[in-house]
Amino acid sequence: MGSGKTMIGEALAKKLNKSFADIDKIIEEKENMPITEIFKKEGEAAFRAKEKMEIADYLTGPSAGNAVVSVGGGAFLQEEVRHICMKNATVIFLHISWTAWLERLDMLVETRPVLHGKTISEIQTLYDDRQTVYDQHHYRVTVDGLDPEEASDKIISTLRTKPI
């Protein structure tokens, strides 16, 4: 959450000559409302079910392998989603340190329902708890201080030098 998945993913897709899919944006377009509204009207469980369905469809359907896909930070907390991703895609964890992430917090809170009404201490606990789940990946790329172009170059370099 807040690591720059969308901007970095778009830059990476362009460099790899692939399409780009942001699962959150796909859901927003299908539901004709922002994620925050889906959370308010239908609840987190309903959103997570939609998210899981879109990820499974995207990673196992006809587009599989031809796109860079941005999966929301909360999606990967679902064991079934992790399994689908690890089996059907190359999972790149965009790591951002707590210090760098904290600098983005003001802009993140508004668009991340999971952060609404939380104290800094609660938010740090959320960040820390997610790190152990995010350890399940094929590649880890630290993006602190990198713009999307630099981050996408670092990903490409990582993919070339450390094949799965």
Results as ranks from 00 to 15, higher is better:
Arg48Tyr: 02
His138Leu: 05
Ile35Pro: 08
Gly2Ala: 10
Thr142Phe: 05
Lys18Gly: 00
Val109Ile: 05
Val91Met: 09
Leu115Ile: 03
Thr6Ile: 01
Glu150Thr: 03
Leu59Gln: 09
Lys154Pro: 01
Gln124Lys: 15
Gly73Lys: 01
Glu122Ala: 04
Phe76Ala: 04
Thr119Arg: 09
Ile96Phe: 05
Ser63Ala: 14
Arg112Thr: 14
Ile8Cys: 00
Gly74Met: 07
Phe47Asp: 11
Ala89Trp: 01
Met1His: 13
Gly145Phe: 04
Phe76Leu: 02
Leu12Ile: 01
Tyr134Ala: 06
Asp24Asn: 12
Asp22Tyr: 04
Asn66Gln: 14
Glu37Asn: 03
Gly73Val: 03
Pro163Thr: 01
Pro62Asp: 12
Trp101Ser: 05
Val114Lys: 06
Thr119Ala: 12
Leu102Trp: 13
Lys18Ala: 07
Glu10Asp: 06
Arg104Met: 00
Thr36Cys: 00
Glu80Pro: 05
Asp135Glu: 14
Ile23Phe: 03
Asn32Ile: 00
Ala64Gln: 10
Lys52Tyr: 07
Ile35Tyr: 02
Asn32Met: 04
Thr119Tyr: 11
Asp153Tyr: 04
Glu10His: 03
Val69Tyr: 02
Gln124Asp: 05
Pro34Arg: 09
Thr90Asp: 13
Gly9Glu: 09
Ser63Cys: 08
Leu102Asp: 06
Glu42His: 13
Ile23Gln: 06
Tyr139Gln: 12
Phe47Lys: 13
Thr125Lys: 15
Ile156Asn: 11
Pro62Lys: 10
Val91Trp: 12
Leu16Glu: 09
Glu28Arg: 04
Glu51Val: 02
Lys87Arg: 13
Ala67Gly: 05
Cys85Arg: 09
Ala100Ser: 15
Glu110Leu: 13
Gln124Tyr: 14
Asn88Met: 00
Ser19Trp: 00
Lys52Ser: 14
Ile35Ser: 04
Thr90His: 12
Lys18Thr: 03
Ile26Val: 14
Ala46Tyr: 09
Ile23Met: 08
Ala13Tyr: 03
Val141Ala: 06
Lys15Cys: 02
His137Gln: 11
Tyr134Cys: 07
Glu10Val: 08
Trp98Val: 03
Glu44Ala: 10
Leu59Ser: 09
Ile84Ala: 05
Val109Lys: 15
Thr99Gln: 15
Ile38Gln: 09
His83Trp: 07
Trp98Lys: 07
Asn88Val: 00
Lys118Leu: 15
Gly117Lys: 01
Arg130Leu: 02
Met86Leu: 15
Ile164Gln: 11
Ser157Asp: 14
Val69Ile: 01
Gln136Ile: 04
Glu79Thr: 12
Glu42Ser: 15
Pro62Cys: 00
Thr90Ala: 08
Ala21Cys: 14
Thr142His: 11
Asn66Lys: 13
Gly4Asp: 05
